[in-house]
Amino acid sequence: MRRVTVSGQLGELCRGRGDGLQIFLQRGGARWLVFTAGAAILGNFAYGLGLGGARSLVMGLMVGVKLPLVIFLTLAVNALLNALLAGALGTGLGGRQTLRLLTLPFGLMGMILLGLAPVAWFLAWHAPAADGDDYKIWYPAFLLLHTVGIALAGILAHRQILPQVRALAVTRARGTLVFFVWLAGNLFVGAQLTWLFRPYFGSPGLPVQFLRDHPLEGNFYEAVLHSLRAIF
């Protein structure tokens, strides 16, 4: 029997193809589920450490815990909806198959973020003191940069499962449609969950804490607009 190595599994995950991946998608398998979940946790923790580390080590550790949480909650919040949409759009994909398909991009996103983590740490090391004037310019730029970086990592990771969704769906067109619906839903919910779990490096003048005192106030999209106005 062929020995499955971690690097071989990582290669299959990154390429979005391979024997192990096909078996997982068709029939399931605990090994792949553990591998993708592990990749998601490891990558998000490493990147989160850089994100929060810009403020302090404690903040880095907090964000290292929060980012994987956001990922798994996004998957959980959208799980039922995504399975229902797959059925409603006539793809022929069942609930379990949908869930298995959607764990892959989150695992791959973890690997992308793990690759980007050294750059995140490098940028975090340059963070000016939180009580200085430079921090007010640096903060919105850093916020936008990471928002764009994480969103692109998510989109690229999802893109890798598109051929699989097309292959498993009844028709290629329906596979494409449901893929974009899932992607839009995951980005939309993921962004708002990210907002609820703020702070990530802390607005100037606000203390380091795991969650804000009123985490449910406002939304992600208003915050991005505010950052854009602050820069330009």
Partner: peptide, 16 residues
């Protein structure tokens, strides 16, 4: 170059 090496490997493999 060393800082960007891990991400190059991931993106390269993703690109085929």
């Amino acid at each position: 170059a060393l800082l960007c090496l891990p991400s190059l490997i991931i993106f390269g493999v993703m690109g085929g």
